[in-house]
Design a protein around this nucleic acid. Sequence first.
DNA 1: ATTTTTATTCTACATTTGTAGAATACCCTC
DNA 2: GAGGGTATTCTACAAATGTAGAATAAAAAT
Lengths: 121, 121
Amino acid sequence: MQLTKTEEELMNHLWRLDKAFMKDLLEAYPEPKPATTTVATLLKRMADKGFVSYTRFGNSREYFPLVKKKEYFSKQVNSLIKNFFNDSSSQFASFFTKETNLSKKELQELRAIIDSELQNK
Amino acid sequence: MQLTKTEEELMNHLWRLDKAFMKDLLEAYPEPKPATTTVATLLKRMADKGFVSYTRFGNSREYFPLVKKKEYFSKQVNSLIKNFFNDSSSQFASFFTKETNLSKKELQELRAIIDSELQNK
DNA sequence: ATTTTTATTCTACATTTGTAGAATACCCTC
DNA sequence: GAGGGTATTCTACAAATGTAGAATAAAAAT
């Protein structure tokens, strides 16, 4: 199952905080903050979808992510690639390199990463 | 505004075909094909969102995309980057290179692209 | 202990999305 | 020009999403 945009936003807070109580999550939002009940509903739905869980502490809960940001993100990218580039990551890579505004420095860094990846092949 | 997954699928057909009548779009779907009315509804919604338009031909219409695949896709990637990498494309690039399964050949191609990009800087 | 604050659950409701039938209008063919 | 195929519009409806009030329960503060 998929997270919606709104759920993703909350998930991002949770990833950043690593684990968090309701109040921490509310704090994480910029003004205007959503109602507590709104966040509670989102958390419940996200728990149903298997993205978060929690530890009980008295009556309240410490929420934590069940899915790593990396994993989640990786699926996102892969689905983008599948959807728009007939599953060709190189086509995507080429597109990405040309179309996003990487600075000279960033491009050089990226080349370094690629070189080190090539070492392992 | 955003396209939903289902709308994206249709949009993909349209991009591939460049322009198309209802019947072409229906053909483009794999079995089980959606009902004509379903596609019609989607097209209308997509037109409302400003993603497609059409030329009248008698009582039927030749639909065409108003947004280029490249543009659309570019926005998707940028929003992914913004959402998950605090707007840092280099962080994303690094992630991408490490986490997607690029073959040796693809990595080499990618390096070539980067080199040629670096020429222009 | 009484009040205040805070989190949770239950309920609710408007909007969006996925899907398609019914009715209608048009074009093509015999 | 009557009948069959096809596209469009209208209508509908279930499910998902965004949002939050009311009621409740428990913890913290005074």
